[in-house]
Simulated assay, not measured.
Amino acid sequence: MSRERISMIAHADHPIKSPLDDDSVSRLLEHGLPRGDERVLDLGCGTAEWLLRALESRPHLHAEGVDVSEASLRHGRLAADERGVGERLVLHRQEAADFASPRTFDLVISVGATHAFGGLLPTLAAAREHLAPGGRVLIGESFWDRAPSPAAVEMFGDLADLATTVDLVVADGWTPVHGHVSTRAELDAYEWACWGSLASWALDHPADPASAQVLEAATDARSQWLHGYRDSFGFLCLVLRRT
């Protein structure tokens, strides 16, 4: 089974592919969309869940999303039609870093997708190119909450701590106007949802040729989390304006 398919199964019960609960997502969108009639762009949108939630609660909003996964975009298009917002959503299949648009956007979202641009600051540079005057950026990035193990560093790379991460953003010319640090409950709920969904799928499909592979993937990922990075990994979302 492809990694893309495994990811789709893992996130079946947690469509926001980051350690955030529904209330946190709603608050971040409220701060990113103060008017309710903005034009929104999500760079690395996956199944477009951020955009779908914004569109559902704001009937005058228009949104576009960019992702390389055709399966994720197909899922997003179907969900948009089912939720009655398909006419206000445009999805593009291409590398987010290569996306160009003739229009600018009032909110640019990139949560958990900074790897697509080569890091936090390159992601902000890309977002700046799409931002309308006075616009906002909603970005989500990992950080080390405490000293990581060598295994955690091997998995996630050379992350900064929380204070350094915010300092880097401010030094780059941005002002945080809202922020959210994922709680232990959010972090744990996300991990249990992902690896539990995978394990359940494998147990529910014992005759599928991929069942053993999926169960092994769930077991390995759960072990890496519990033994490797649970005590050190953190996740930060910021709503930013240009200084």
Score class of each variant (00 low, 15 high):
residue 95 E to I: 01
residue 96 A to F: 00
residue 96 A to S: 08
residue 96 A to C: 01
residue 96 A to T: 01
residue 97 A to S: 14
residue 98 D to S: 10
residue 100 A to N: 06
residue 100 A to G: 08
residue 102 P to G: 09
residue 102 P to V: 14
residue 102 P to W: 08
residue 103 R to E: 13
residue 103 R to F: 06
residue 107 L to Y: 04
residue 108 V to R: 04
residue 108 V to M: 04
residue 108 V to S: 02
residue 108 V to I: 02
residue 109 I to M: 04
residue 109 I to Q: 03
residue 110 S to L: 06
residue 111 V to L: 06
residue 112 G to A: 08
residue 114 T to Q: 15
residue 115 H to S: 15
residue 116 A to D: 02
residue 116 A to H: 13
residue 118 G to L: 06
residue 119 G to K: 10
residue 119 G to R: 05
residue 120 L to V: 15
residue 120 L to G: 07
residue 121 L to D: 06
residue 121 L to P: 10
residue 121 L to A: 13
residue 121 L to Q: 14
residue 122 P to H: 10
residue 122 P to W: 09
residue 122 P to Y: 07
residue 122 P to G: 07
residue 123 T to I: 13
residue 124 L to I: 08
residue 125 A to V: 10
residue 125 A to N: 10
residue 126 A to Q: 08
residue 127 A to I: 12
residue 128 R to D: 09
residue 129 E to K: 11
residue 129 E to T: 11
residue 130 H to A: 06
residue 131 L to N: 10
residue 133 P to L: 11
residue 136 R to A: 06
residue 137 V to H: 03
residue 137 V to E: 05
residue 138 L to S: 07
residue 138 L to I: 12
residue 138 L to H: 08
residue 139 I to A: 05
residue 139 I to W: 07
residue 140 G to P: 12
residue 140 G to C: 13
residue 141 E to M: 07
residue 142 S to P: 00
residue 142 S to R: 01
residue 142 S to T: 07
residue 143 F to W: 10
residue 144 W to N: 03
residue 144 W to I: 03
residue 144 W to M: 05
residue 144 W to L: 07
residue 145 D to L: 13
residue 145 D to I: 09
residue 147 A to K: 08
residue 147 A to N: 07
residue 148 P to T: 09
residue 149 S to H: 03
residue 149 S to T: 15
residue 150 P to G: 02
residue 151 A to H: 02
residue 153 V to Y: 00
residue 154 E to G: 03
residue 154 E to Y: 00
residue 155 M to Q: 04
residue 155 M to G: 00
residue 156 F to H: 14
residue 156 F to V: 00
residue 156 F to S: 01
residue 156 F to C: 02
residue 157 G to Q: 00
residue 158 D to M: 13
residue 158 D to I: 09
residue 159 L to C: 05
residue 159 L to Q: 00
residue 159 L to N: 00
residue 161 D to K: 07
residue 161 D to T: 11
residue 161 D to P: 06
residue 163 A to S: 14
residue 163 A to Q: 13
residue 164 T to P: 13
residue 164 T to C: 15
residue 165 T to P: 13
residue 166 V to M: 09
residue 166 V to D: 10
residue 166 V to G: 12
residue 167 D to M: 08
residue 168 L to G: 15
residue 168 L to D: 15
residue 168 L to R: 15
residue 169 V to M: 14
residue 170 V to R: 12
residue 171 A to F: 05
residue 173 G to F: 05
residue 173 G to W: 04
